[in-house]
């Protein structure tokens, strides 16, 4: 398992586990970022942070620090 933040732009992977502060974690899960879901790192913002993700056809932006707490399998 590797952190989501380690994906390269354009690369997809399957979510294994989501860690983080409870309200944040809950929000990500509710937006559909559940274990077993496919996630794609769409791109990185021009200044290197935050990241743009695609989950279930929806685009989300979260920061690198929080993305590091999400484990994925390529």
């Amino acid at each position: 398992m590797s952190p989501l933040s380690a994906l390269k732009p354009g690369q997809s992977a399957t979510v294994q586990q989501v860690e983080g502060a409870r309200p944040f974690r809950r929000r990500l899960l509710e937006l559909g970022l559940l274990p077993g879901t496919e996630v794609r790192l769409v791109k990185v913002a021009p200044l290197g942070d935050p990241l743009e993700l695609e989950v279930r056809g929806c685009r989300l932006s979260i920061r690198r620090t929080e993305a590091a707490a999400i484990g994925v399998d390529a």
Partner: peptide, 12 residues
Amino acid sequence: APRVPLVLELPP
């Protein structure tokens, strides 16, 4: 305050 994570939807 502790830094609050950013969760931003990027709508079409």
